[in-house]
Design a protein around this nucleic acid. Structure first.
Length: 667
DNA sequence: TTAGGGTTAG
């Protein structure tokens, strides 16, 4: 006999049921529920034999040993034939039992019986009890009973409304919360700050800026602007509607900003693409000393570092995590794996991975994706096999990582095998991301027709990204007829972007089709389509420097351009020849070479060479795909200037060392 | 026993 703990409430009712065969027969027509609070356990036997609800209950202190005998001892008379206890027990006990019963019962007929009984009895007229009962009903997933019960209450108080509003705000019909809020105001009842925050939350959930703004106005009029928690909810509301400025305004107006408020602000910046500012906010928090960053802050900032490829800052956050003893949190570790992988720092990602005691599917998938994006496709597959051996079940994202591993390393057969395996063995239907990897895999391998057939035959609707992937493959293999065809699909989806036309231009120019080039350029000019400027960032000593094509904004611009000229000369001596096919203009060879010189990644690299010593690692992140010329440039630079280079572009990592690229090839 | 806010960990 062992003492009971709250976790054992369910096994307890099972234990009673399984007592012995005789007991089972006796209990066949009854439902047994057990309800536990800090001190006691209440066991309720609910009988279905009688036409009106009848039950008996007993309460045992939690520290006492439980057995079927002790249960029978405490209620010897009622055990076998539960009698309607509502007639014989005190009112308080009745209420207690009813509430316990509702809380532990998920059986609909019971709820209906209880409610029918309540409607007949006088219990409903007691506002305190009706509130209790309403809140019990609200804990059920199905709010229809709560709504029905609510409609039977003659004069619902604001507490009644608040209870129901709270339940609806996190339900599948959040709009009901707003409707109830309006109704209560019409009746002259005033919501308090707590119910306001539920209403705001529901506006976020049913995506209505208009309703949310109305509520904000009312909050101002009712004078609740000093409530820090309510204002945090409002910040989240503005943040979720991409109104970063409004969220900031609310933040500034807060008299007391706690860590959660800072976290909401950081999450707002992260969500709205102001990633670099997230790092600044983290520093502000630490330096101002008012609010110490917590584990959630670290999680958010880690993601920002991953997006930026800001390794040094990420390491700083990692140190902070260790200092504050957050290191054992698996979500943080998993996020760190992703951060280090996305910064091209696989050994550190692996260190974090090794340190996780119990690795879950997310830990494994993060590691697999990390290996994949850094060009270690075979190791990603080995990791997957190891994961299977440890008994972890793969999910959708595990296969995304695996398939991208195959596409990065040109493992066509393996990739097709995994695509087959995922649905057959694991029952996971390939989604658009999985197909995207397969299209990329086939496309890069030159199997363009097969890639096209995959898109046409897949069960999910092809999105713009998947067409764009195929367009990229057309660019590699100079297949302009299929490229034109793909653009048509993108136009059909109304998703064609400037970058897509640039790819098509690249296809035309790489095949020397200058007539088509000028035709398309004319078209772009007429339509006013602006191409996205290339942008590269490099992190040095914890500071992220950004460069755009032909950038002249950097304070050290003269030194950078001089350095770039010097590098160009040196690389030419080493055998570097400017590759011009990806350039848009139909220029002379000399002009082309000049036009290529100031791509943003070259500026970032020149700056890196300028301020570091030989032997260092330079990490560059680019928003678009790196062009073949810059790829060559980097390859030569890594040898001539003795720098290890890790360039992350829109699709993958490129590692360069001693004049070689880890992929051994541009693609 | 009406009872609040932030993390899409990959």
């Amino acid at each position: 006999m062992t003492p009971l703990t709250p976790d054992e409430s369910r096994p307890l009712s099972e234990a009673i049921k399984q007592g012995n065969a005789k007991e089972q027969t006796t209990l066949k027509m009854t439902q047994i529920s057990a309800c536990i609070n800090k001190k006691n356990i209440t066991i309720i036997v609910f009988s279905l034999k009688l036409s009106i609800p009848s039950f008996t209950s007993t309460t045992i202190p939690i520290n006492r040993h439980f057995s079927l005998e002790s249960f029978q001892e405490t209620c010897p008379n009622n055990y076998q034939h539960p009698k309607p206890m509502l007639k014989s027990t005190s009112r308080h006990q009745q209420q207690q039992t009813m509430v316990s019963l509702v809380k532990s019962s998920t059986h609909k007929p019971h709820l209906l019986q209880i409610q029918a009984h309540l409607t007949r009895s006088s219990l409903l007229q007691n506002p305190k009890f009706s509130l209790l009962f309403l809140s019990s009903l609200c804990s059920s997933r199905d709010l229809r009973y709560a709504r029905l019960f609510f409609s039977q209450i003659k004069n619902p108080s604001s507490s009644h409304y608040n209870t129901l509003i709270r339940a609806y705000s996190s339900s599948n019909s959040p709009k009901e919360a707003f409707i109830l809020y309006r109704e209560m105001r019409q009746k002259g009842l005033k919501p308090d700050p707590i119910s306001f925050s539920f209403v705001i939350k529901s506006c976020v959930k049913f995506r209505s800026v208009f309703c949310g703004l109305q509520v904000h106005g009312r909050i101002i009029r009712d004078g609740f602007l000093s409530d820090c928690l309510l204002l945090t909810t409002l910040m989240e509301f503005y943040s979720s509607f991409a109104s970063r400025e409004d969220a900031c305004k609310v933040f500034d107006e807060m008299s007391q900003k706690d860590t959660v408020a800072w976290n909401v602000l950081i999450s707002c910046y992260l969500r709205n693409g102001r990633t670099r500012d997230v790092l600044m906010l983290f520093d502000n928090m630490k330096n101002e000393g008012v609010c110490e960053p917590d584990d959630v802050t670290c999680l958010l900032v880690t993601q920002a570092c991953a997006n930026l490829g800001a390794l040094e800052f990420g390491e700083k956050v990692h140190r902070y995590i260790k200092e504050r003893d957050y290191g054992t949190a698996r979500n943080l570790s998993n996020s760190l794996i992703s951060m280090y992988s996305r910064c091209g720092c696989l050994d550190k990602a692996y260190d974090v991975f090794k340190g996780i005691g119990e690795k879950n599917v997310i830990s494994w998938s993060a590691m697999i994706s990390g290996l994949a994006m850094n060009g270690f496709g075979r190791d990603a597959i080995l990791a997957f096999e190891e994961m299977r051996r440890t008994g972890v079940i793969p999910d959708e994202q595990t296969f995304t990582g695996l398939l991208s591993a195959c596409s990065h390393c040109g493992l066509v057969n393996e990739g097709m095998e995994f695509l087959n395996q995922m649905s057959k063995e694991f029952g996971i239907m390939p989604n658009v991301h999985h197909y995207g990897c397969v299209v990329d895999l086939l496309g890069r391998a030159g199997l363009l027709e097969q890639a096209y057939r995959v898109i046409i035959s897949m069960k999910v609707k092809p999105d713009a990204t998947i067409w764009r992937t195929l367009l990229g493959a057309c660019r590699i293999h100079g297949h302009f007829t299929l490229g034109e065809h793909v653009i048509e699909h993108l136009i059909e989806l109304k998703a064609q972007e400037a970058g897509d036309y640039v790819l098509l231009l690249n296809i035309y120019s790489s095949t020397g089709n200058w007539e088509k080039v000028s035709e398309l350029r004319k078209f772009l000019k007429e339509k006013g389509i602006q191409t996205t400027p290339g942008c590269s960032s490099i992190e040095l000593k914890g500071i992220v420097h950004e460069f755009i094509v032909d950038d002249v904004s950097h304070p050290q611009k003269h030194e950078i351009y001089n350095k770039l000229d010097e590098i160009n000369k040196q690389l030419k001596i080493a055998g570097y020849v400017a590759e011009t096919t990806s350039e848009l203009h139909d220029l002379g060879a000399e002009e082309k070479a000049n036009a290529l010189s100031y791509h943003s990644e070259k500026l970032a690299l020149a700056f890196g060479v300028l301020v570091t010593r030989p032997g260092t690692t330079l990490r560059v992140t680019k928003n678009l795909r790196i062009c073949i010329d810059c790829h060559n440039f980097a390859k030569f630079l890594s040898g001539v200037y003795n720098r290890q280079l890790i360039i992350r572009d829109r699709t993958r990592f490129h590692h360069f060392r001693d004049g070689h690229c880890s992929c051994n090839d541009y693609w």
